[in-house]
Every structure is written in C-alpha cells, then in structure tokens.
Amino acid sequence: MSHALRVVAAEALKQHRRLFGQPLVLFSMLLWPLLTLAATYYTVLPVMESATASQRWPVAADPRRLLAFLAAGALAYTFFFSLVQSAWHFSFERVSGTLEALFLSPANRMALVIGNGAAALTQNAWLFGCFAVAAATAADVLDVAHPGMYVVAALALVVPAVAWGAFLNSLLIFSRDSAFLYTLLDDPLWFVAGVRLPLFALPVWIKAVGVAFPLTSSLVVLRGALLDRADLGDLAGALGWLVVLTVGLFLAASALLRLGEARVQRTGNLQVF
C-alpha cells in the first residue's frame, strides 16, 4: 500500500511540473469555460423568459438561479474534461518512450493511472474550483440543507472524477486514435450529461446514454446538494448509482490495464485498442 502511495506522490510531482504555471491551464480551465458559460446563458435566456417556462422549470424564472445552475454544470464539466485532457496527454508517453520505462518498473499499474488522474485533477481544476466557491458565496446562490452536504457534494464530484480519469488513462494509453476519443468526449459529453439543460428536457435515449457517464449523476448531486437544499435521502438514488459507476470504472480500468499489458507483452505493439 505504501508503495502505491509513493507512486501517487511521484505522479503528483510529474503533473505539477507539467501543468503548474502553464498559461494553457489558466485559459482552458478558467477563461474558456467562463466565456462559454456566459454565451450559453445568453443563448438559452430567450427561452427562459417565455411566459410558460417557469411553470415547466422553476429555475427559469430567476436569472441568478439559472446562472448558478449552468455554472455548476460548467464546474463539474471542467473537472471531468480536465481528466480527458490529461489522459490524452498521458497517451503521448507511448510515443515519447516513457511508457516503456513505466512498464519496466514494478509499480502497480492501477496506482499509476489513479495517481496520474488525481494529480492532474488537482493541478488542473483547483483554480476553477476556488473561483466557483468564491462566486457562489458572493452571489449568495447556495441553498444547502446541512453543512455535511458540502462534503457530500465535493466527494460526489471528486471521487467519480478520479475513477473516470483512471479509466480514461487506461483506455487512451493503449488507444490507436486517442485524438478521436478526445473529440468524442468533449462536446458530446456535456450534451448527454445535462451540463447545460435540466435532464427532463433531454429525450429519453439521450438520458439513457448520459446515465452511463458519472458526470451526469455527479451533477445531479452537486446541484441538488448546493442549489436545491436536497439532503442525503433526496439524493440516495443518484449517490447509489454513482457508487456503482465508480466501482465499475475502477474495475474496467483494472481490466483494461491487464488486457492491454498482456497484449503488449504478446505482440510487442503498444497500440492495442
């Protein structure tokens, strides 16, 4: 176990060096999401101002609540997307030859991908996280049933995100066309996960696809706990499903790593899937 923790610490240093002070983090993890958030808000505003909108969706009646709803979506999406980005970057280790150096070492492979994801998440998303907390406090939009729900919301955001990162890392290091996966998990991800719309507005088949992604349920918990005064009982379903998804993602990551490495050992070719 302590060896696994040392691997995580090592990955944290690597991500810190890769990302800290990079202008790209400031832009892609704060400025672009904020500009996009504003554009999204104004794009849907005409619809929200229609006479019947507030009957269908009470949030529509209050521009501040609407903005908080969309901002929560942008925050969670930024967390999850930062892991897509870092996994994409991880896949370049195959090209640079360092992946081979990792496979030479006795380090636990699962610890490697989890450490990489967790470290990337903290390096990438702390800025937007702080911003969101400050903005939410200043705008006084939070409506929380119990202080413990802050912890629930934070855990529901971070733990599935780390599992998601571990899964993506495992998938992308062996992937032939990681650029395609990267594109697939950019825009379509926010669409199916209800980042910019309440889930009820989505057609059933899109909702069905969205349920498979942990971002969807993370968002339900985040919005419920922080904006809608939901307590543990209200969120039990979403939290339960998040646990299932998180465990599933970890298991899938572990299976991908085992299959991938076995295949590499057999064929000598690092591009597996």
């Binding site: 849907v44 929200m48 019947t52 909108a53 269908r56 309440p198 507005a201």
Partner: peptide, 12 residues
C-alpha cells in the same frame, strides 16, 4: 430542446 421542453415553443 430548451425551446421545446422548457419554453413550450415560445420565446420571451
């Protein structure tokens, strides 16, 4: 989707 499901086919 917003126009149909939330706005009810109308805008402000």
């Amino acid at each position: 989707l917003a126009y149909r499901a939330i706005g009810g086919g109308r805008v402000g």
